[in-house]
Design a protein around this nucleic acid. Structure first.
Length: 419
DNA sequence: TCTGGGGTCCTAGGACCC
DNA sequence: TCTGGGGTCCTAGGACCC
């Protein structure tokens, strides 16, 4: 059997751990630039505040019910996520970290041992709550997609927290699960299928394979199989290396000047490179892109991107910053109002034993030495930043301050503990 | 009038997830 | 006036090869 552990209202729960006064209050957490609502406490959900809604659209509701509105603190959430995952690990389960707030666990044993699975799940829940302060819900079933469904029911606020969908009750649950709640069925597919008379998870699972293949490709077929209790997705204990790493930000006010935008890009490049090195990967390709306002008026593109393939894969911040700046220089059009820019590293290869370019081999020893030297410098920078805090050492090209709006952080008030 | 068949690789765009 | 950020997978179509 599989189990899906899903943290309840994760970002809000993290905030509550450090500010217990928030308990019982309607709380929302905002995205970067305080733009949209990305997490809600159960009290905020009850007020009808929608997920993913632009904040300004909810201003009236937020004010009326005195909702506590917080800017996001992603480094905190990622730290708390690690604590939750470490707790699961210490309990000795085979598991897959699926997202910042979810993990799939394998429960050994015969599928008939329902009572045992339920009590195991209860224990997992209690230990996580006690050790980290984060409440979780757990869905247990034969397949990942059914676990997701079970988890949905576990979250329905009847104080259950743990739900097991056994074969005998599968139909009953799936008939109660709306199509839009099925994992992998998004709004587009949902609309299309409803027109064809498919409204519940059960309806979907009962469609012919041929129909599913045609309407939703192999993806839809897989979902239906999983809903029927036939596993198509397995628990991946070892995380596959990432295929791309990117950073992009929108600005509160559009930027115009080449220098300013390049400094931003350099900062993002610094970040992605740090990520890249912590993955122990090298990038073979770098891309830079922008989104602009009023581009139509100026007859320029509202979105554009340039990429360059690197001669040798690298994780050197200095090299990638100069590549990023060069790419943006090509893209840059004076007078455009840039509202967002981003950097993307792709074609990532493992740091160890990457395929070397046959034709560059003669020059390799020299190049190799240079590369090794650069890698050493990067390593020292990463160590210093890890020890003394992010951006203790950075490249001169990188913009110093974030241009993001985050007005609703109360973290400066936290006391500092000296050990 | 009749114009093969089988394959790979790349890219852009769509859809989805958290 | 103000609408986030970071990913993955799949498909279709074009170019190209033998």
């Amino acid at each position: 059997m599989l189990a899906l552990v899903d943290c309840n209202n994760f970002f809000v729960s993290c905030e509550k751990v450090f500010n217990p006064k928030l308990e019982g209050q309607p709380v929302v957490v905002l995205s970067n630039n305080d733009g949209v609502i990305v997490a809600r406490s159960k009290e905020a959900k009850a007020l009808g505040i929608p997920m993913g809604a632009p904040r300004f659209q909810c201003d009236d509701l937020l004010k009326k019910y005195q909702v506590v509105v917080l800017s996001s603190n992603f480094s905190l959430y990622s730290d708390m996520s690690q604590r939750v995952m470490q707790t699961i690990q210490s309990l000795g389960y085979d598991f897959e970290v699926y997202s910042v707030d979810e993990a799939f666990l394998s429960f050994e044993g015969d599928k008939k041992e329902q009572a045992r699975f339920l009590s195991q799940a209860q224990e997992v829940r209690e230990v996580i709550l006690q050790w980290t302060g984060i409440p979780v819900s757990i869905g247990i079933a034969q397949t990942k997609t059914l676990c997701k469904a079970a988890n949905y029911f576990a979250k329905q606020g009847d104080g259950k927290h743990v739900v097991l969908i056994a074969e005998e009750v599968r139909k009953e649950y799936l008939e109660r699960l709306g199509l839009q709640e099925v994992w992998g069925i998004g709004s587009k597919s949902c609309e299309r299928l409803k027109k064809k008379g498919i409204f519940t998870a059960w309806d979907l699972s009962a469609c012919s394979d041929q129909f599913l293949r045609k309407e939703l490709s192999v993806v839809g077929l897989r979902i239906a199989m999983e809903l029927r209790g036939i596993p198509c997705l397995h628990v991946e204990e070892v995380r596959a290396p990432r295929k791309s790493i990117s950073t992009a930000r929108s600005f509160v006010q559009p930027l115009f000047l080449l220098d300013e935008i390049q400094a931003e890009l350099a900062r993002y490049t610094g970040r992605v490179c740090e990520d890249l090195r912590s993955e122990k990967s090298l990038a073979s390709c770098i891309s830079v892109w922008y989104e602009a306002k009023d581009a139509v008026v100026s007859a320029n593109k509202a979105y554009d991107m340039r990429s360059s393939i690197l001669q040798e894969p690298t994780a050197s911040t200095s090299e990638l910053i100069s590549q990023a700046k060069a790419l943006f220089t090509i893209l840059y059009k004076g007078g455009l109002k840039y509202k967002k820019v981003g950097v993307l590293l792709s074609d990532l290869v493992p740091e160890e034993g990457f395929q070397q370019d046959l034709f560059s081999a003669p020059a390799l020893s020299q190049e190799r030495k240079k590369e090794a030297k650069k890698a050493k410098v990067m390593q020292v920078i990463d160590q210093l930043n890890a020890e003394f805090g992010a951006q203790t050492i950075r490249f001169a090209a990188e913009a110093v301050k974030s241009r993001c709006k985050r007005e609703l952080c109360a973290w400066d008030e936290l006391p500092i503990v000296s050990v």
